[in-house]
């Protein structure tokens, strides 16, 4: 494997500092209330951090096409997973109200007394 490409250490050092900085930003952003944007901001920073780890630490930036196909294929499957679950969840409302108690779709969590599991639910 002579001639194998070795990534310069400076890349790693910069990525490391960047990741620590972004962690600080995550905590800082959580101190302020942006309303509905809170989750979006937290996830956006997480995606940037994850991309840094993938591209530099895991060397995806220097990988060949098929590795990208594997990884992006996996991510696309996860997005489909989320899409269909939420396509169901977000369009349930009316049916739920009409048929509550019939399908028992939204049965509330049973409050547990004295740390024992409820029997026969």
């Amino acid at each position: 494997m002579s001639g194998h490409f070795i990534i310069p250490v400076s890349y790693y050092v910069k990525t490391f500092i960047g990741l620590l900085f972004l962690t600080f930003i995550t905590v800082l952003a959580a101190q302020f209330d942006f309303g509905a944007l809170n989750l979006t901001i937290a996830l956006l920073i997480a995606v940037v951090k994850a991309s840094l780890v993938l591209l530099i630490f895991m060397g995806l930036r220097w990988e060949k096409g098929f590795t990208w196909v594997l990884l992006l294929g996996s991510v696309v499957c996860v997005l489909i997973f989320f899409f269909f679950v939420f396509a169901d969840l977000m369009t349930r409302g009316a049916i739920d109200i009409e048929e509550a108690g019939f399908h028992d779709l939204k049965s509330p969590v049973i409050k547990i007394e004295k740390g024992h599991a409820p029997t026969g639910h």
Binding site: T26, A42, L43, A46, A50, V53, L54
Partner: peptide, 10 residues
């Protein structure tokens, strides 16, 4: 590490 990056804020 990647998994934890998402778990921490969530």
């Amino acid at each position: 590490d990647l998994v934890w990056i998402f778990l921490f804020p969530l």
